[in-house]
């Protein structure tokens, strides 16, 4: 059966060290849609990205996540990646001794194996590398090094987008890929994402700022506050947030919660 949604999150609750961080989160993403998730620091945005990719920092205590009709929570991180989920990390990891080339070759071939495909030949792989490097304007000097080792902040972010280009995910999560980038780097990264996208690629952009959304224009904007999506809207919501900040949302959300608790009594 073909589902309408690529990703469907229902009433998701997750805690870290018994402290509830996600408190009943709902989100539905169709193929090809771009969603932006905004919200103040500490509201749970990265935790959501971790839960989606299977990083065991947070424990899921309730709710379901369905990806392409399958139960995502049953899958290992590598299975999720093979199914087409990709995270551009807020803080990419340096891995000394593991070369970018070997890393990408292994990742691509493991994903191909998952899909029942033969490994790429050495020449096809090198051609692909070259093509994608141009696309995201990343220097060969970087791809010849160990993974992220000695990369600047901007280079690390570009490298995330390069990996996304290589792996061609169905759902890309960009966790503050824009933070720490100057305007040129931001443009390159954003254009990279746009060039990589196929019509059915879905993207969830986690960001604080409107400026990335000038390049990657979202279909929906959600505000995540204190573990819940407290408001959703179109691209204009991002502009309002840019002007007015988060305080009014916080107030509104806190009020709603109080009212709700009072009602229950």
């Amino acid at each position: 059966m073909q589902t309408e949604f690529l990703l469907q999150i229902k009433d998701l609750k997750a805690s870290i060290d018994n402290k509830e961080i996600l408190k009943g989160l709902n989100l539905e993403v169709k193929p090809g849609e771009i969603h932006a998730i905004m919200g103040p620091n500490g509201s749970g945005k990265s935790t959501l990205a971790n839960v989606l990719t299977g990083r065991e920092i947070a424990t899921v205590t309730a709710g379901t996540i369905t990806f392409d009709g399958k139960n995502l929570l049953d899958m290992s991180p590598e299975e999720r990646a093979c199914e087409g989920i990709f995270l551009s990390f807020q803080y990419p990891i340096e891995i000394p001794g593991v070369s970018m080339v070997n890393f990408m070759k292994t990742a691509i071939n493991e994903q191909r194996k998952h899909r029942g495909l033969e490994p790429l030949s050495a020449s096809d792989f090198l051609r692909l590398m070259r093509e994608k490097k141009e696309l995201v304007e990343i220097d060969s000097a970087l791809t010849n090094r160990s993974v992220n080792e000695g990369f600047s902040g901007g280079e690390k972010k570009k490298n995330e987008i390069f990996q996304m280009a290589m792996l061609e995910p169905r759902l890309a999560l960009l966790d503050e890929t824009d933070s720490g980038l100057d305007i040129d780097a931001l443009r390159i990264v954003a254009n990279g994402v746009n060039k990589i996208r196929r019509p059915d690629t879905s993207v969830i952009v986690i960001t604080h700022y409107q400026r990335l959304l000038d390049y990657i224009v979202p279909d929906f904007v959600h505000v995540l506050y204190d573990g819940r999506i407290v408001r959703s809207g179109g691209p204009e919501l991002a502009l309002t947030l840019e002007e007015r900040g988060y305080d009014w949302i916080k107030k509104e959300a806190d009020v709603t919660e109080e009212t709700w608790t009072t009602d229950r009594k």
Partner: peptide, 28 residues
């Protein structure tokens, strides 16, 4: 390094292979 291990796995590399890559990188 757990973070490095997760990073490799998040790109589709099986846990065993990812561990091997990290150990090999360490040795290399």
């Amino acid at each position: 390094d757990e973070n490095a291990l997760f990073y490799l796995r998040s790109r589709g590399i099986d846990e065993r292979e990812a561990k091997l890559m990290l150990m090999f990188g360490f040795a290399h």
